[in-house]
Write a protein that binds this DNA or RNA. Structure first.
Lengths: 202, 202
DNA sequence: CCCATTACTGACTCACTGGTCAGTTATTAT
DNA sequence: ATAATAACTGACCAGTGAGTCAGTAATGGG
């Protein structure tokens, strides 16, 4: 009785393939990633992969989307439903969230987008609508609420979300490029938030 | 009298080739860039290109180096020799410099490094030593001088350089990815510097 | 048990590109 | 002028990898 050469597992394949693809793209970038290697790591033949994804590019897009999906949601919900003051929220959940990003799959996605974005505009649009715009919007609302409640000065600038997020971006890039040079990225973000709050508090 | 098919211009070739290569790498990234196209844009045959650069990778490194070389120097000299107070220096020349970066070739280089850095560690080291380390060091010295002179609090954090530079990084990435969504990057940096100064001034 | 269905395989094709090299032409020295 | 030199060309090669497809085998229904 020989073992069956394979099992048919239509339901699981897409996820298995995109997960393998994520690793391969993360290691090699888009252009240098080999579809054959993705197939191998997913434990699947190249032919089958092409049954689920029409082209390499479509696979790439699926990978990006799969990482993005619902990763922000927890934070967004918390922002909308929290009982905390805006200051406490920024100091607490928001800071915690930002600390986690540079070491998460999101960092890989952002790296891939920076590298390949120009040739995949629809992917950038997708990322914009589902991550950047939502995220910045939520932070903006949090700040506005702070102004309404009299926590913050109403001069609080419109670009505050981008400002708040800036050291997170630096931390991400630092980790990607200069992993071997130490930098206390958590402290960086803490200090920065301290500064911003001092600046906008009444 | 036919025109000569070509001129021998040994002196100029490397520069012509690296400039063409910069454009091509900027458009396509490393892996998707075609050496043939670089040659064509430089007005040169592929064979000649390979006389000046042994491999595509060496060409890439030459491009990165050619952009980096001496681009910081003007700023560094100014930092060391300026008569300005630290605050005035940060508000003036440093801010001006940072405003220019996101639209300059340096932004392209950083994009390429983020994309390809992992596979070219020596290039990252080179960039670290010649740009990042020097730049952050100079800013650090400027801040220290401010502390010595009694302009700034001496709690002025060690990560201040990275903090100062953060909105410049955000502006860069924004321009690369979201060119069509407007963002007043100059204002972003101005506000940020305002905040930082308010935080560290005595 | 047998047949229909379809998930799955992997050998193959073909376009493409990094890199080479034999030969050509501009330039310089004599 | 002529020969020697070296800058330069472009056709070519060999390796590679995206995408295909004819065939195989697992599964499920009758």
């Amino acid at each position: 009785m020989a073992e069956p050469r394979y099992q048919r597992r239509k339901q699981d394949r897409p996820k298995e393939i995109t997960e393998a693809a994520f690793d391969v793209f993360a290691e090699h970038g888009y252009a240098s990633a080999r579809v054959e290697e993705v197939a191998k790591r997913a434990g699947v033949s190249k032919g089958l992969l092409y049954l689920y994804f029409k082209t390499k590019e479509e696979l790439f897009k699926a990978v990006i989307r799969s990482v993005v999906i619902r990763r922000l949601d927890a934070l967004l919900v918390t922002i909308e439903t929290t009982e905390l003051s805006s200051e406490a929220f920024i100091r607490g959940p928001l800071l915690e969230f930002m600390k986690r990003v540079p070491g998460s799959p999101v960092a890989v996605v952002i790296r891939l987008l920076i590298a390949e974005g120009q040739r995949h505009p629809d992917l950038v649009d997708y990322y914009w609508e589902n991550v950047v715009s939502k995220g910045l919007g939520a932070i903006a609302r949090c700040v506005e609420r702070g102004v309404e409640r009299g926590e913050f000065r109403d001069t609080a600038v419109t670009q505050l979300p981008q400002l708040l997020v800036a050291p997170m971006m630096v931390s991400m890039i630092w980790k990607i490029l200069f992993a071997k040079r130490t930098l206390d990225t958590d402290k960086l973000m803490e200090t920065h938030i301290e500064m911003v709050l001092a600046y906008i508090k009444l």
